[in-house]
Nucleic acid binder design. Structure first.
Length: 618
RNA sequence: GCCGAAGUAGCUCAGUGGUAGAGCAACGGUUUCGUAAACCGUCGGUCGUGGGUUCGAGUCCCACCUUCGGCUCCA
């Protein structure tokens, strides 16, 4: 690293510094400096915020006299390229804290002054600056040796950001950029952004006729028949996983009086996110979570240690008044449905129940091709409960992770103040990471609601609660898989699994028979009975990403056969109808990831083999 | 909530103060076809909503609604 190793730094600084010397991050941070100096050339009165390297790129925050336009970004980028061509060295200099403050006050950089002021004065430390091409910036470094060493970069967009993320502080303008080691990396990243735009679930949702949004009920999807078919397929699988895990389904009311939320603590801590209604004399809220109501179900009778664990699945709709600016398609809605699970168990059952939870998570994600990864969030600084309690609770989670032989990362201090948790992540086809389930251990609510069960010795004991939703919400998960599969769902999920394509009107009757056979096997099939050419019907079915098209013409009708064409382009002719229906039934029942387009790189086999339909090729 | 941008036919978009357009879709007719778009014709718009400026507003101004990007990555 370029920084003096004997520089005295606070422990906090060292932590901030840790991992900052990845060469790519260093280069990106240098790119942020080059961008800042370009902005200063165009807007000499600009005040500088911060400019770190981030995942995939960098940003820099500025206070500017006016909002930036796309044309400004182009101008800034052009200046940056001039600096790269000039290949100016980065030079480090050091000042004492007082000198640094004086210098920054003099140059009119109040945000930088604030940063230096917050650095501890004791022990005294040197404040480093980096200069290139007449532009000086407070910076810990390190940097690349000179501006010519920047990799291929591109400015992406500008948007507002509060100084230090605090909405009471001034609003700055943030410019985001991306930078990579090679042009190929940059191209790949830009392709990924482009691809993400193409797959945007809001666009595909409308094109595939799954759901729409309307100003009449903002931030809440209207599910169309095809979207609902997808929802039910997701739901059926999730319920199957729960049933096998020993869960029983419950359903609890949406509108619940204030008193319950007061007891659960939501009234104090979560009311801002709740829709509150004045129902006659009684104030009530639309539920943002299920747990307090599952507790009411638990408490309807005296429970015994023999009853535990009790596992409830509740898929009812929740309401959360999210900030309007946070809403985003299916990813953030105000009416949501979780595949919610609550377990009430004895202390000695916690480890097994956690293990069950981890097991169900893996199982439920498997048919999507998702391999979940795990993060154990441990005690924060501000916490409830003794160190012994945390040792025990964290130990239980570790034990469960180990018992399932799962690798996991640590998120030190990441737990809620009352208990540790395991966060579950999946990565989609574009390499984006999504946080999914959180498996939360809860000793608080049982206490607040004075839950108990009768132990074998006749005492009253307090149960422990474990909460988790695996998909999270159906809404958000649908958004994720629409983008993950780019609308090309595997057969078991596809809203329309089979489109029967009669070649001419005289085949309509046989097409109906085919559809009925599919229907009897529980396969979602439709007939394209428009007076269109077969080619047009196939094209439309392809565009709808329907996995299987069954062409039926004279030859098929005569042989009581079908000619399947898959979304992947593979096709074959004269497959006996019953045989094909059975094959599809098998694939649906086993929730195969099928049909899948062969990766372009794996060009194996002769063209004729590739065109060979489905049946054997999986 | 805050900052910025956007909203024209079902969809994608053109229209920079002077008569609202195109392609696709839809609808009607012809066509009945063997693996990704048949042909001909017709319909379709309170230009997000409300107000204002103007002889005249899709276009300029204001307010509101909805949507999009960001406000989490900390020298």
């Amino acid at each position: 690293m370029a920084i003096d190793s004997d520089e005295v730094r606070s422990r906090a600084d060292e932590l901030l510094d840790a991992g900052a010397h990845d060469p790519l991050d260093t280069m990106r941070h240098s790119a942020a400096h080059v961008m800042a100096s370009s902005v200063m050339q165009l807007f000499p009165e600009a005040r500088l915020g911060i400019g770190p390297a981030i995942k995939d790129g960098f940003y820099y925050d500025f206070e500017l006299p006016r909002p930036l336009t796309p044309a400004d970004l182009e101008a800034i980028e052009a200046k940056m390229r001039e600096q790269v061509a000039a290949d100016v060295p980065f030079e480090r200099s050091e000042l004492s804290r007082d000198e640094a403050l004086a210098e920054l006050e003099h140059s009119g950089q109040p945000f930088k002054v604030e940063i230096v002021r917050e650095l501890p004065a004791d022990p005294p430390q040197v404040i480093s600056f980096y200069r290139h091409d007449g532009f000086v910036d407070l910076c810990r470094g390190p940097h690349v040796p000179s501006t010519g060493r920047l990799g291929p970069f591109k400015l992406l967009n500008s948007a507002a950001a509060y100084w230090r993320g605090d909405e009471t502080r001034p609003m700055l303008q943030r410019i985001y950029g991306t930078a990579w080691d090679t042009q190929a990396d940059l191209d790949r990243y830009l392709w990924r952004l482009e691809e993400a735009k193409k797959r945007d679930h809001r666009k595909l949702g409308r094109e595939l006729d799954l759901f729409t949004f309307h100003p009449e009920s903002p931030a809440a999807p209207f599910w169309h028949p095809r979207g609902m078919a997808l929802w039910r397929a997701l739901e059926a699988w999730s319920l199957e996983v729960r049933r096998d895990g020993g869960f029983a389904e419950v359903r609890t009311p949406s509108l619940v009086r204030r008193e319950l939320w007061q007891q659960s603590g939501h009234w104090d801590l979560y009311q801002d996110n709740m829709f509150v209604l004045d129902a006659d004399e009684h104030v009530a809220g639309l539920k943002p979570m299920n747990c307090p109501e599952e507790i009411l179900v638990y408490k309807t009778r005296a429970r015994s240690y023999r009853d535990l664990p009790m596992r409830f699945a509740d898929y009812s709709t929740l309401f959360r008044k999210e900030r309007t600016g946070a809403l985003a398609g299916l990813f953030r809605v105000r009416q949501l449905t979780q595949d919610d699970s609550h377990v009430f168990c004895r202390e000695d059952q916690v480890a097994d129940e956690l293990r069950l939870a981890l097991n169900l998570v893996q199982r439920q994600f498997a048919p999507f091709g998702f391999l979940p990864t795990f993060k154990l969030a441990t005690r924060p600084e501000k916490k409830l409960g003794s160190d012994e309690f945390w040792d025990m609770a964290e130990g239980r989670l570790r034990e469960a992770l180990d018992a399932e032989a799962l690798a996991y990362q640590l998120d030190p201090g990441g737990a809620a103040f009352y208990a540790p948790k395991v966060d579950v992540f999946i990565e989609d086809a574009l390499g984006r990471e999504w946080q999914m389930a959180t498996i939360q251990l809860d000793y608080q609510l049982p206490q607040r609601f004075d839950l108990e069960y009768r132990s074998g010795e006749g005492h009253f004991e307090r149960p422990v609660m474990i909460h988790y939703a695996i998909y999270g919400t159906f809404e958000r998960f649908t958004g994720i898989i629409v983008e993950h599969f780019a609308g090309a769902f595997p057969l078991w999920l596809a809203p329309v699994q089979v489109m029967v394509v009669p070649i001419a009107d005289r085949h309509l009757e046989y097409a109906s028979e085919v559809r009925e056979a599919l229907d009897a096997a529980g396969i979602r099939a439709e007939i394209d009975d428009r007076s269109e050419r077969m080619q047009a019907k196939l094209r439309d079915a392809q565009e709808q990403q329907i996995p299987v098209m069954l062409v039926v013409g004279d030859r098929d009708q005569e042989a009581r056969a079908v000619s399947p064409r898959l979304r992947t382009g593979a096709s074959s002719q004269g497959v006996p109808l019953e045989e094909f229906v059975q094959e599809l039934g098998r694939r649906v029942a086993s929730r195969e990831l099928w049909p899948r387009a062969e990766p372009a790189s794996e060009e194996a086999g002769s063209p004729s083999e590739q065109r060979e339909a489905s049946t054997a090729a999986s």
